[in-house]
Each structure stands twice: as structure tokens, then as C-alpha cells.
Write a protein that binds this DNA or RNA. Structure first.
Length: 218
DNA sequence: CACCAGGCAAGTA
DNA sequence: TACTTGCATGGT
């Protein structure tokens, strides 16, 4: 009862079951997906990634060498394709510059160092940095997204104007720094958000998911 | 038809 | 510092 966030985790896990994120097979694929899914439905991202896979182009070397117009057209289905082509290239170029193009070396960095390095890349913001850190590198940095903010604020657990850092600290202070828990918890919040906490949905006292909101509202 | 989706950076005052 | 705007596809 004193740690609502940890309690919510258990409740979500028992209702939705393990989500087994990220939906990607390799750290590289996860990193690419993290950039492509910025403000975008996953089904569109998935189409773009499957297209690259089909042509055997989903590799560091292939994408790094690909001219901008071709990369943009190949990721068209993910939306914002010109922007995302540049962002992906920025990231790959920076890895070449600072880590000799060696993803394993980048992902061997200590959690905080890795996250801060990712944030220096233009086009990588806090959520994308944390997604890569947690899901591609396997380090415990909690991912906060639009659903997380909506769910927390609608339950009165944070003010509407809470910042990314404030929400992340709330999770970091409430949970053991466990990669498995961070992984599942974020995925479960997305699952919950998709079902019951959409933008236009009624606020939580009246929302349809009585099973999980009941205990939070009291 | 309008609205939304697992953001981010640049522009304006 | 505090808002606002551009980026773009595909599903409901």
C-alpha cells in the first residue's frame, strides 16, 4: 500500500501477462525501431522494418552506407521518413565516430554514460535514449512515454505538467533497478494505455477498466 | 470525415 | 523561459 507503483506493476502483470518486449530480434533492430516509432503507430514501423529485412538491408553496414533518398523511401511507411532517415544516419555516424561502428562496445558502456551519449545525438531524445538503453543494451533505465504520462497524471500520481525526468525518477525511486521489471512495466503501461487510457477516454474514475483502477482510486 | 499513434527539435516572442 | 509548429504514414 505504501508503494503504489510497485503494486500497479503486479496488478498489470497478472491481468495482461508478460509482454516480452521489445518486438525486435536483435539489438540493432531494436535500436532502429526505437527511432522509427517516434510518435508513430508500431504497425507502420513494423512494415518499414520488415521491408528492410526482406531485402537483407537491416544491418549497420547497409543502412550506414545507404544514400539518404533511398533510406527515406525504404522507411516511408513509418512516417516522418525524411526526418527519421536523418536521425538514423546521425546515430549510425556517431557510433562510427566514437565506437568504430561497434554496437557491442557502445552497449558495454555504463548505464548513465550510455544514456548521456545517446542524448548527444541529434534526433535522440529522452524516450528514444531510454528505449535503446533498456531494450537494446539491456540496462535499467525506465522508459517514460505519452501513455505513462497520461496514466500517471489521470490517477493523480503526478501533476499534469510533470516532466520526463520527474516521472522517470518516480519509477527509479519506487522499483528495484531490475531490467526485467523495467522492461515489462513499460510494455504493460503501453498495453494498458492502448486499451483503457486513450487520449479522449474518460478520466480514470469513469474509465472501463474497473479491475485495475479501483485499487488506485480508493 | 477527423483524429490518433511507443517524439523531437527548431522557431517565435 | 514558455509556447507553437513541422514532420507524414496508415488505421479507426
Amino acid at each position: 500500500m505504501k508503494n503504489k507503483l510497485y503494486e500497479l506493476y503486479g496488478l498489470l502483470l497478472s491481468h495482461f501477462g508478460p509482454q516480452h518486449w521489445w518486438p525486435g530480434e536483435t539489438p540493432f533492430e531494436i535500436m532502429v525501431g526505437a527511432v522509427l516509432t517516434q510518435n508513430t503507430n508500431w504497425s507502420n514501423v513494423s512494415r518499414a522494418i520488415e521491408g528492410l529485412k526482406k531485402e537483407k538491408l537491416l544491418s549497420f553496414a547497409a543502412l550506414e552506407a545507404m544514400p539518404h533518398p533511398e533510406l527515406a523511401s525504404r522507411i516511408q511507411a513509418s512516417g516522418y521518413f525524411n526526418l527519421k532517415a536523418i536521425r538514423l544516419k546521425n546515430l549510425l555516424s556517431a557510433i562510427c565516430r566514437d565506437y568504430e561502428g561497434d554496437l557491442d562496445r557502445l552497449f558495454d558502456e555504463e548505464t548513465g554514460r550510455l544514456r548521456r551519449w545517446l542524448l548527444t545525438v541529434k534526433g535522440i531524445g529522452p524516450e528514444t535514449a531510454d528505449s535503446i538503453t533498456l531494450y537494446a543494451a539491456g540496462k535499467p533505465s525506465f522508459v517514460v512515454d505519452a501513455y505513462t504520462h497520461r496514466i500517471l497524471s489521470r490517477h493523480g500520481l503526478v501533476p499534469e505538467e510533470a516532466t520526463y525526468q520527474e516521472m522517470q525518477e518516480l519509477f527509479h525511486d519506487s522499483l528495484p533497478p531490475d531490467v526485467y521489471i523495467f522492461n515489462e512495466y513499460h510494455a504493460l503501461l503501453v498495453a494498458l494505455g492502448k486499451h483503457f487510457c486513450k487520449k479522449k477516454a474518460p478520466l480514470c474514475p469513469g474509465c472501463p477498466a474497473k479491475q485495475w483502477t479501483g485499487f488506485l482510486i480508493q
